[in-house]
């Protein structure tokens, strides 16, 4: 089949926009197109399709530092993006899809900086035996997508700070992230920049396919992907699309010990058990019942507490406690 090659560059650093573009390309590209899409996100944690944000990262810290959290289409583990990171995406129809070709494009591009790299056979690209690129794959409706990160000059302190396992007592059925020893490419080749890396990738893509592709620049003004952005902006997609999980929140108040066990499915509380040595048992019985079917969102839970807990001191204590633990 004749192939059409396209290179897209995003000018936006907004993860919602960029992931929207990616999904739009999967949905709307032509069957004969072979696409390379390069993009960057500012200060973002991207979790795998089947992960739980509460488990993979410290949501409280993300909120405090204004880090965006977003769920992607492909599986695998959580990653941190900032402007020292460049993302690549290859999209084509299944019969034009060859991970090996894609990797060759990347490895050759990196080679232009004198860096020898290799694929470890699973999901990572390594240089000097350390990971500089995590890859993930998804296929849907006859199209396949292979995307990955390229750590050029990422703030590794932040990376490890945000990707620390949740301080919450939580059990999730989804996919767990795997810690890796990582390296920034700039550390190996100090003169590398994001721009030169982009250029090298595009050159490598053109060389591999023996083509001279025109580059298409994308930004929020030029294209309408609002339908997709809405999804990537939603609490439902980012938080409630997690596999089922359970969580235990506990605290010692001056009115007694309080422990609440929640089971969650599709972002809603499906089961709730409260243990307490407080004498105000009546309130807690009602709270247990009233929380069923409520969304696991701070505002929703607070309004239930407000409505059903009569004792002012307990109400105040619980409200502060929930606000401290649940951040969405």
């Amino acid at each position: 089949m004749h192939k059409k090659f396209k290179v897209y560059l995003s000018e936006s650093f907004d993860p919602k926009f960029n992931l929207s573009i990616e999904e739009w390309l999967m949905d709307c590209s032509e069957p004969d197109e072979v696409i390379l899409f390069l993009w960057q996100n500012e200060n973002t944690i991207v979790i795998g399709r089947n992960q739980n944000p509460y488990k993979e990262c410290d949501v409280k810290k993300l909120k405090e530092d204004d880090v965006c959290l977003i769920r992607r289409l492909s599986g695998g583990g959580a990653v941190y993006h900032d402007l020292g990171n460049l993302n690549f995406t290859f999209i084509s129809s299944d019969n034009n899809y060859d991970v090996e070709n894609n990797l060759k494009v990347i490895i050759d591009a990196i080679d232009k900086f004198g860096i020898k790299s290799c694929f470890n056979g699973r999901n990572d690209l390594l240089a000097n035996e350390r990971k500089f690129s995590g890859n993930a794959f998804i296929s849907d409706k006859g199209k396949s997508c292979h995307h990955g990160t390229l750590l050029m000059d990422v703030d590794l302190d932040k990376l490890s700070r945000y990707l620390t396992v949740s301080p919450l007592k939580l059990q999730s059925k989804g996919i767990e992230s795997v810690l890796s020893r990582v390296v920034n490419l700039k550390e190996i080749c100090p003169q590398m920049t994001i721009e030169s890396l982009k250029t090298a990738l595009i050159t490598s893509f053109n060389e591999f396919y023996n083509t001279e592709t025109k580059i298409i620049i994308l930004n929020e003004n030029g294209i309408d992907v609002a339908k997709y952005v809405e999804k990537y902006n939603s609490w439902e997609w980012n938080y409630s699309e997690s596999p089922d999980f359970s969580i235990v929140l506990e605290n010692k108040f001056d009115w007694g010990i309080f422990e609440i066990n929640l089971e969650l499915s599709d972002g809603k509380i499906t089961n709730c058990k409260i243990f307490t040595d407080s004498i105000e048992l009546e309130d807690f019985k009602i709270l247990e019942k009233s929380l069923i079917n409520v969304q696991f969102k701070r505002s929703e839970i607070l309004s239930i507490i407000e409505k059903y807990i009569k004792n002012g001191k307990i109400k105040q204590g619980l409200s502060n406690f929930i606000s401290d633990k649940i951040h969405m």
Binding site: N95, Y97, C118
Partner: peptide, 18 residues
């Protein structure tokens, strides 16, 4: 109606061995 074609097998021949 669309026939889903089998994906070509991919190996990692080009990746340099570790």
């Amino acid at each position: 109606t669309e026939v889903v074609k089998a994906k070509p097998a991919y190996s990692f021949g080009l990746a340099k061995p570790v």
